[in-house]
Amino acid sequence: MIHNATIQNLANLHEVKLKNLAPINVIIGENDSGKTMILKALYVLSKSVEEFGRGNDNRSIKEIVADKLYWTFQCDQLGDLVSKDQDNHLKLEAEIDDQHMMLSFSKSAKNTVSTVTEHVYHREENSIFFPAKEVLSLFNVIKKSRAIDKEFGFDDTYYDLVLALEKSTQQGKNFRNFTESKKLLEKLINGNIEYKDGKWLFKKGKMKISIYSTAEGIKKISILDRLLTNRYITPGSIIYIDEPESALHPKAIVEFLDILSLLSKNNIQIFMATHSFFVLKKLLLIARKENMSIPVFSIVKDKVEYSNLNEGMPDNPIVDTSIELYEEELDLDI
């Protein structure tokens, strides 16, 4: 679990402090405010610690971090990520479980970082990033582009997800803690996905449907189901979700968030970036019902405002827009 994190001088984000993080955390802000950048920065930090020392990988943490930054942010050189109007270094740090992870580099950095925490140990659990777009129908394209052609286009959030999905399902019982979540997921989409002979199929009863003919929302939810089934996601995993609302009907969003809430109770930490009033509203209800802390980090003009949904709906641009629409309607009605 990530307990606290700080991001300094990453693109337009001068200083973002994420304190007292909880099982579910929300980032909101207008388009191009830097929400996805924050998710990606946290992903790089947690994923690097997980890749370090895995199997026979003998790369140093410095090499892993540089590689992960390069392929996640896809910039010509790492220094391009540093805020243009700042002379200071870009710095990312986080308290992950009981270890401190920090990296920094300057504008002149090409393909290496200047400082990384020295004493890092391997983290066994997996982080995973769900981009706003589904990946199943582009599965082979993403693999080829990233693994064979080594081209920019699909960043490591896509590529890592593709590799995670490819992991075969295992015999034996699923984690008992996830049984309820899996049941709800399969009820929500009325089926599941299967990988056979290099192709994805959506199985609905006895019917097998090509993934290309399957609805976008179904594919998105199926991905979570698959990762619970093949045990890529385990207790201790961290899930980053960019725009959970994309391609989902409000009713499906609400049910999907109930499932995420269940997972969060089973030691899975969730970070999500959203534009959706439905997402915020549903999380507010979860926070109240479960009496749980759900921190909200709202990016407004390069500054981050902190609030918590267990204290009510915070002032934020999503709610403000909803009020503006209401008042516009009131002006017409009265």
Binding site: M313, V319, S322, I323, Y326, E327, D333, I334
Partner: peptide, 16 residues
């Protein structure tokens, strides 16, 4: 014809 309900003290965010 309009039906109008005026509620005192309720935040704008709760009206919708």
């Amino acid at each position: 014809i309009k039906f109008v309900l005026v509620i005192k003290g309720i935040p704008k965010s709760g009206l919708q």
